[in-house]
Design a protein around this nucleic acid. Sequence first.
RNA 1: GCUGACGUAGCUCAAUUGGCAGAGCACCUGAUUUGUAAUCAGGCGGUUGCCAGUUCGAUUCUGGCCGUCAGCUCCA
Length: 652
Amino acid sequence: MIDSTQAAALTLTLPDGSQRTVAPGTMPSEVVKSIGERLLMAAVAVEVNGAIQDLVTPLRTSGTFRVLTERDATSLDVLRHSAAHILATAVRRLRPDAKIGFGPSIDEGFYYDFEVAEPFTPDDLAAFESEMRKVVAEKYPFVREEVSRAQAQLRFTDDPLKLERLSELGEDEIISTYTDGPFIDLCRGPHVPDTSRLKHFKLTHTAGAYWRGDSKRQMLQRIYGTAFFKKDELDAHLLRIEEARKRDHRVLGRQLDLFMMHQFSPGAVFWTERGTVVYNALNDFIRERQRDDFHEIKTPLLYNKALWEISGHWGKYKENMFLVLDNETGEHDFSLKPMNCPSHYLLYQSKKHSYRELPLRYVTFDVLHRNELTGALSGLTRVRQFQQDDCHVFLREDQITDEVHFLLKFILSYYETFGLTAKLKFATRPEVRIGSDEMWDRAESSLKTALEATGMEYELKEGDGAFYGPKIDFDVLDSIGRPWQLGTIQLDYSNPERFDLTYVGEDNSAHRPVIIHRAVSGSLERFIAILIEHFAGAFPVWLAPEQVRVLPITDEYNGYAEQVTKQLHDAGIRVHLDARSETLKYRVAEGARMKVPYMVVVGKREAEQGTVSVNVRGAGKEQKANSLPLDEFVSRVVKEDKSRTLTLEAHG
RNA sequence: GCUGACGUAGCUCAAUUGGCAGAGCACCUGAUUUGUAAUCAGGCGGUUGCCAGUUCGAUUCUGGCCGUCAGCUCCA
């Protein structure tokens, strides 16, 4: 710790360029107050040299000085972390036996972990929330104290989890505690000035969570909540959760009759006739995109463990593989493949390759099996059996930049077709890795060059790469702004060695290729889940299981309706005729519920004029009479289907 | 896998303080012939997830199993 009494005076540079000179150890609150009393009222925290700290942490360094108010994004983290302390304050009052764990702010709000004999119930949650309101009303200041290790140990004698954390702190670290009223916590801060700053919050749910995320340690009870500075922001957040719930692909999947799951095959999907249409439409799209520059192959699903020993999966990934009993040996010598990579290598290896063939891109839609933990399974997003739009590129090292550029463009334009936007993440060498530093230097710089050539912004994820090479990950944002990690481009220098892959170079000698692993959709199952939620079940025409539904007004016009249906069908449109003796209103309502893009109503007028009256999805009761000649409607739908248009345009 | 909650008709959900399990929708039949978001009537439909135990009696209570859901990554 710096001995502040003897250090030189600090110089603080404010955003307007003006400077203040203060003694080391001065509280930021004093500096803020000197700028303006009202600013002090609005201040949540300060930023010194880019590092956030609260108003009651002594200043120790010179540099830039900025006051953070509710308008600054980082202030929200401070508020939420303080909310976690307020939650703990409330819990301790009502359940004095609760031992405290960690209570950080997270993307969506905050949580606090407690060790208790009896798990919390929803009633407890309501009680904690109202107790929190009392703590807020009592307006306790968050008091910071810097203490010695021995003092800290004394303060947390009853909290073994805190003591454990304390024991891990380095010798030179400042140990601080924060107190709000009756509650004291070992905490680095920063915090808002007092508990009354927390106005708009809600406890959302509880769940078990392992201490330090380690399944070997004890299970704690975690309480999740969220907090905002403004009421409308909290309301908007809760509304977004509600909106996400309405879009839940598991609910829509049943409603729209797309797929089902069965307890006899947990984690595997039964695609209905309608769901299969969506699946195939997606598959056709990917195939079409990959027709020119890729080579589609199909490889076995079942392999002898010898392959997995070479690939290293037998040692590292066996838990996640479905092993198959070989009756002849009585051993589980075979396994369903959990990934396509090794099978692609085997095919590559089976013949000699010239440098002229490279880059060589193998793509596969084979079925994969991964034995995920039962508790990890969830709808279509986490399954045990799935297909990937998997690609392995074999290339020369000097082709990396061009190839990555090619794949980046390919992936981004793919997402664009669905109206999805992507954010890029560049992940570099992890601590545990294979290959020389020199190799990593080359790999990272090639990837980075290619990435920067796109001119797109990206986030650097240092140390997040695969153990065999750096990668670019694609975080896709759906229509309600939720991120999903989908595509990936991974450089691999390791497997060419393991599998002794070669190509014949210009010099007529054998060279080692590099491999790029590429996925665009991740798994097709999960991608469809995302699409269902992204479109809220209202697929564009090209993906819709049923594109047009024909509704004759009375059975007098069934003949014409059949003619209309046939003409659409012959044009390649997915069309159904609903000539049931239900009222038109009823049939329209049902078609709308199934989110059919177009319903065409035909009666006397249409039969006489050779037209259809087009009901467009989403127009609701505002539906106008969109009368179109049949031929024109058919060609418009065909065009919309072929061009994969996102909006509905085939109407008058 | 672990913690917690849940599992009743195809779906959404009632009910049973341990005593004949019910509604709406869907489905089937009939009537109705409808001009754009639910026409009327009747009917079919259940080993209350599975297996044990307690009990005169279990869908209800107890235990085990299976499945589903929330979470187990955010770090004083």
